[in-house]
């Protein structure tokens, strides 16, 4: 009886080996990376947040982390209204959203080629004027006065404006004008966009989307230049 018991034990030991082998072929674990965790973002925002061919979904890569974090919080809390984003973020804790913002801010895939814009020279010139000089008669500061001389934004809260398509830019400016997109008070973008006409919006969108990538596309360091007015998204030191 004892011998037989031993034999069974030996058999069990031998048969355990192939079992262990089978277990090794069980599916591995999900990769412990942020890249894997933000796969949900890629269908609209592209791999590494570099954007896709769909003009309505913005590039995320390389934008200042503070800006991205502000947007994630605004979507999560419903202050910025876009149901697919509100839905995805609703039950994610702020610490984790910060990790996501840091991840996309640290990605630097090349900017896409500038768009070939179907706009008249007059429209492009109006766009260039608004972006680089503003229109003080209509209380419109130059985009570059906040978004930087090279339009790549400033840490921590001001996004770059390059690598975005015209339809996204005009949709966002429209959303500011109509109050469906808002930011932390004082909501400077809402004030500025409120002074734009629809033609201004089209001109700015056309001009910005046609600009080539600068050599250095990272946002400027915090405090690199003074803002023309206070902005809730850009804390001053």
């Amino acid at each position: 009886m004892i011998i037989r018991f031993k034999r069974v034990l030996v058999w069990l030991a031998l048969s355990a080996a192939p079992l262990a082998g089978a277990q090794a072929q069980q599916p591995e674990a999900a990769p412990d990376t942020m890249e894997a965790r933000v796969q949900a973002c890629t269908p609209c925002h592209g791999a590494n947040g570099q954007g896709t061919s769909d003009p309505y979904f913005p590039r995320l890569a390389g934008k200042p982390s503070g800006y991205l974090n502000n947007q994630l919080l605004a979507f999560r809390n419903g202050r910025r209204h876009y149901p697919p984003m509100n839905y995805l973020l609703e039950f994610l804790p702020p610490d984790y959203l910060k990790n996501m913002a840091d991840y996309f801010a640290a990605q630097h895939p090349p900017l896409p080629a500038p768009a070939v814009v179907d706009a008249s020279p007059e429209v492009m010139e109006r766009g260039r004027t608004l972006v680089t000089q503003g229109d003080y008669a209509h209380e419109i500061p130059a985009c570059s006065s906040c978004h930087g001389p090279s339009l790549t934004g400033m840490e921590p809260g001001i996004p770059g404006l390059l690598g975005l398509r015209a339809s996204y830019i005009s949709a966002q400016l429209g959303a500011w004008r109509y109050g469906t997109r808002t930011a932390i008070a004082p909501d400077c973008m809402q004030i500025v966009a409120g002074h734009l006409t629809e033609d201004d919006v089209r001109a700015i969108a056309a001009y910005l989307s046609a600009q080539p990538a600068p050599k250095e596309s990272s946002p400027a360091a915090q405090g690199s230049y003074a803002l023309p007015f206070a902005c809730g998204s850009e804390p001053t030191r």
Partner: peptide, 24 residues
Amino acid sequence: LNGGYPPGTSGNPHPYGMPPFAQS
């Protein structure tokens, strides 16, 4: 269609998201 994230919890603070496929 919509994808989704499980909730971020103390037991799973960094959940993995399912991509939405409504567009594609």
